[in-house]
Protein backbone atom coordinates (compact mmCIF):
# COMPACT_ATOMS: atom_id res chain seq x y z
CA UNK A 1 0.00 0.00 0.00
CA UNK A 2 1.41 3.34 -1.04
CA UNK A 3 1.69 6.53 0.90
CA UNK A 4 -0.41 9.57 0.09
CA UNK A 5 1.70 12.73 0.09
CA UNK A 6 1.14 16.42 -0.48
CA UNK A 7 1.99 15.82 -4.13
CA UNK A 8 -0.99 13.46 -4.50
CA UNK A 9 -3.32 15.96 -2.86
CA UNK A 10 -2.10 18.77 -5.13
CA UNK A 11 -2.65 16.53 -8.16
CA UNK A 12 -6.18 15.79 -6.98
CA UNK A 13 -7.00 19.48 -6.46
CA UNK A 14 -5.64 20.16 -9.95
CA UNK A 15 -7.64 17.32 -11.57
CA UNK A 16 -10.93 17.78 -9.74
CA UNK A 17 -11.12 21.52 -9.24
CA UNK A 18 -9.27 22.70 -12.34
CA UNK A 19 -6.65 25.00 -10.75
CA UNK A 20 -3.20 25.05 -12.33
CA UNK A 21 -0.62 22.81 -10.69
CA UNK A 22 1.07 25.89 -9.25
CA UNK A 23 -2.14 27.32 -7.80
CA UNK A 24 -3.18 23.91 -6.48
CA UNK A 25 0.13 23.66 -4.64
CA UNK A 26 -0.34 27.13 -3.12
CA UNK A 27 -3.88 26.28 -1.96
CA UNK A 28 -2.91 22.98 -0.37
CA UNK A 29 0.11 24.54 1.35
CA UNK A 30 -2.08 27.34 2.64
CA UNK A 31 -4.61 24.95 4.20
CA UNK A 32 -1.88 23.23 6.20
CA UNK A 33 -0.21 26.53 7.02
CA UNK A 34 -3.43 27.95 8.49
CA UNK A 35 -3.84 24.81 10.60
CA UNK A 36 -0.22 24.85 11.77
CA UNK A 37 -0.34 28.55 12.59
CA UNK A 38 -3.44 28.02 14.68
CA UNK A 39 -2.00 25.06 16.56
CA UNK A 40 1.29 26.87 17.13
CA UNK A 41 -0.70 29.50 19.00
CA UNK A 42 -2.28 26.90 21.20
CA UNK A 43 -5.51 26.68 19.27
CA UNK A 44 -7.63 23.64 18.60
CA UNK A 45 -8.64 22.45 15.14
CA UNK A 46 -11.82 20.51 14.63
CA UNK A 47 -12.56 19.08 11.20
CA UNK A 48 -16.00 17.54 11.31
CA UNK A 49 -16.02 14.09 9.75
CA UNK A 50 -12.28 13.68 10.21
CA UNK A 51 -11.10 14.55 13.70
CA UNK A 52 -9.62 17.17 15.95
CA UNK A 53 -6.12 18.34 16.79
CA UNK A 54 -5.30 19.91 20.13
CA UNK A 55 -2.20 21.00 22.00
CA UNK A 56 -1.78 19.43 25.43
CA UNK A 57 0.61 20.49 28.14
CA UNK A 58 2.73 17.65 29.53
CA UNK A 59 4.00 18.01 33.08
CA UNK A 60 7.69 17.68 33.82
CA UNK A 61 8.59 14.17 34.93
CA UNK A 62 11.52 12.13 36.10
CA UNK A 63 12.73 9.56 33.64
CA UNK A 64 15.64 7.28 33.11
CA UNK A 65 18.04 6.86 30.29
CA UNK A 66 17.21 3.24 29.39
CA UNK A 67 20.78 2.59 28.29
CA UNK A 68 22.67 3.89 31.29
CA UNK A 69 19.96 3.75 33.96
CA UNK A 70 20.85 7.31 34.83
CA UNK A 71 18.01 9.43 36.16
CA UNK A 72 17.08 12.43 34.04
CA UNK A 73 14.60 15.25 34.30
CA UNK A 74 12.14 15.49 31.43
CA UNK A 75 10.94 19.09 31.30
CA UNK A 76 7.35 20.15 30.78
CA UNK A 77 6.45 20.39 27.12
CA UNK A 78 3.57 20.83 24.76
CA UNK A 79 2.48 17.98 22.55
CA UNK A 80 -0.04 17.74 19.77
CA UNK A 81 -2.78 15.14 19.98
CA UNK A 82 -5.20 13.89 17.36
CA UNK A 83 -8.60 12.48 18.13
CA UNK A 84 -10.41 10.81 15.23
CA UNK A 85 -14.07 11.67 14.69
CA UNK A 86 -16.78 9.05 15.14
CA UNK A 87 -17.37 9.17 11.39
CA UNK A 88 -13.75 8.25 10.64
CA UNK A 89 -13.71 5.54 13.31
CA UNK A 90 -16.83 4.05 11.83
CA UNK A 91 -15.49 4.33 8.27
CA UNK A 92 -12.36 2.39 9.21
CA UNK A 93 -14.32 -0.43 10.77
CA UNK A 94 -17.17 -0.83 8.30
Amino acid sequence: MGTMTKKDIIQKVHNKLGYSKKDSAILVEQVFEIIKENLAHGGKIKISGFGSFAVKEKQAQRGRNPQTGEEIEIGSRKVLTFKPSQVLRKDLNS
Partner: peptide, 10 residues
Protein backbone atom coordinates in the same frame (compact mmCIF):
# COMPACT_ATOMS: atom_id res chain seq x y z
CA UNK B 1 -10.54 22.60 -1.54
CA UNK B 2 -10.88 21.84 2.18
CA UNK B 3 -13.44 19.09 1.63
CA UNK B 4 -11.34 17.47 -1.08
CA UNK B 5 -8.34 17.29 1.25
CA UNK B 6 -10.12 15.76 4.22
CA UNK B 7 -12.43 13.53 2.18
CA UNK B 8 -9.23 12.30 0.51
CA UNK B 9 -7.74 11.58 3.93
CA UNK B 10 -10.77 9.57 5.00
Amino acid sequence: VVNLIFKGFN
